[in-house]
């Protein structure tokens, strides 16, 4: 039973990890370290810091986020990530989809039938 739940959480997280990154960048651009720190603490997401960078790299390769380097007065140069136009579009679609899915699941829980 525990294995089943573990697998299910992995599947559930897998679906929303990228959406979380996109949403985190929707508000403003963030540098990698800052982004990692803001995402690792989200309850239930269970994302390790080591997972985030490969995901960012893949999102950049897919053209959903863009990155730029900027010198920092507080330490080493920082790599800032932001959403591309395509990224914004995809994030909006994903959010809409997830909202609709949540609503459907919630409705099912309430009435036992699809909305």
């Amino acid at each position: 039973m525990s294995d089943f739940f573990d697998n299910w959480t992995v599947q559930a997280r897998k679906g929303v990890l990228e959406l979380c990154i996109l949403n985190a960048l929707a508000e403003r651009e963030r540098y990698g370290y800052e982004l990692v720190k803001s995402l690792v603490d989200i309850t239930g997401l269970g994302m390790t810091e080591g997972t985030l960078y490969p995901l960012l790299s893949r999102l950049r390769a897919q053209g959903l986020v863009s990155a730029r380097l900027e010198e920092s007065s507080e330490g080493p140069a920082r790599k800032y990530y932001s959403l591309t136009r395509e990224g914004k579009k995809v994030a909006a679609m994903m959010n809409d989809y997830l909202d609709a899915l949540n609503d459907s699941v919630a409705a099912l829980r309430r009435k036992g039938v699809p909305v």
Binding site: G32, Y33, V36, E49, G50, Y53, P54, L55, L56, S57, R58, R60, A61, Q62, G75, P76, A77, R78, K79
Partner: peptide
Amino acid sequence: GADAGEVAEDLKRHIDE
């Protein structure tokens, strides 16, 4: 699908931070 070189750079930058 990630760029290994890029991830290595990012990790180094993270450690620097």
